[in-house]
Write a protein that binds this DNA or RNA. Structure first.
Lengths: 204, 204
DNA sequence: CGTTAATTCAAACTATTGTTTCAAACGAAC
DNA sequence: GTTCGTTTGAAACAATAGTTTGAATTAACG
């Protein structure tokens, strides 16, 4: 079956175009032209444009969230009976954003822009995918954070975790625009980010 | 001139539709139908759809940023020679988001969604407008923050300020989705938000 | 009232959208 | 080599997009 090559080439081109131009601005014709496949290939292999969008997002988000979940598990395993620290939990969530499948800087940028877009340019199929991909993760994350910060109520944990994803996603989305006065490498930015949100969680 | 009524009705309808459906999904036909004006009215009064988009954003963003700038000025005036505190600076930026022209809850939601969208669904005219509207504000903000936190470098201020807008915009964009376990009113959410980012700025 | 400019209107224009169709080409199994 | 299911191909479909046009209407002013 030669289909796989066509499928992956469509996915590759689509995710790049979606990331840099937006979900709606990119037409199926544009995708198939760049990918050098036939116009009908998208509808043949994926069903519809909306299904293609969901497929593009799933291929990127699933491995990152799996890595996040794995990091939370190893954290729980290594700390044993002791409670994990807040910054360890947050690092387990934040760091997989830029390692693993998004190792190269291009993959980072692509994932970053896609994450940003899916919060705004939502489609029905995409909304369902996001819920399925994020619900188990944030449940586990909230439970661990409640143990680490027992004085905070569930609602307070909820909002601070939401703030945290806000920082992370906005950073992903705009780290290439609005250039900083002095260059700080990505690792330095991550350290700043983790210390920022950790302090936020520990705030009175 | 009866034109003003047509213009404002187009702006009102457009901003509502843009906020809830996205900039590209909303067609001129849809706007003019809901506004009960002629199809050609948009191109006649605004020039193009892109110009209409910029006009919609300017009408909302300009007063909020003016209120933010005014709040920073009164803060500098009242503190006199003493340095303003971090939380005061951040409150001056955050609180105008939901008072003033966006007093009613509907206006809040509209502004929130628009701010979120303009970070992702950018158009040429919109990008220029944002730069013009935000550059003076964040310059002044950064200068005040550097005085309040002299041990932080300019680059560190830059990133933490970026994190702060990330929290704010993500909160605006998703505060209605992903409902919390327990209801906290908007004022409480703002207090949480300010304490979160203040702690982030004070982090080691 | 009459004139002039501004605004509204219905209609058409050009371009592009996602999708479908059906024949042609391909690849593996027998 | 023939057959069968899969994949590709060129073309057309129906719908909608933003924009333009020119006549009709309205408002303002002398």
């Amino acid at each position: 079956m030669n289909c796989c090559e066509t499928k992956t080439r469509i996915l590759d081109v689509a995710e790049e175009l979606f990331a840099e131009q937006g979900l709606e601005r990119v037409s199926i014709r544009q995708i198939t032209e760049v990918a050098r496949v036939n116009l009908a290939a998208v509808n043949y292999h994926f069903g519809s444009k909306d299904d293609l969008i969901a497929a593009v997002f799933e291929r990127r988000i699933a491995p990152v969230n799996q890595a996040r979940m794995a990091a939370l598990e190893t954290l729980e395993a290594t700390t044993g009976k002791k409670l994990p620290k807040v910054e360890q939990i947050l690092e387990a969530i934040i760091r997989p954003t830029l390692i693993g499948p998004a190792a190269d800087s291009k993959g980072q940028t692509v994932f970053a822009h896609l994450m940003g877009r899916c919060l705004v340019e939502t489609t029905p199929g995409l909304e369902a995918l996001l819920k399925q991909q994020f619900d188990p993760l944030i449940n586990r994350m909230d439970n661990m954070l409640m143990k680490a910060l027992p004085r905070l109520s569930r609602a307070e944990i909820f909002w601070r975790r939401k703030f945290t994803f806000g920082v992370l996603h906005h950073w992903l989305l705009t780290k290439d625009r609005f250039t900083p006065p002095k260059e700080i490498d990505v690792e330095g930015q991550i350290k700043l980010l983790i210390s920022f949100v950790t302090a936020g969680f520990r705030a009175a």
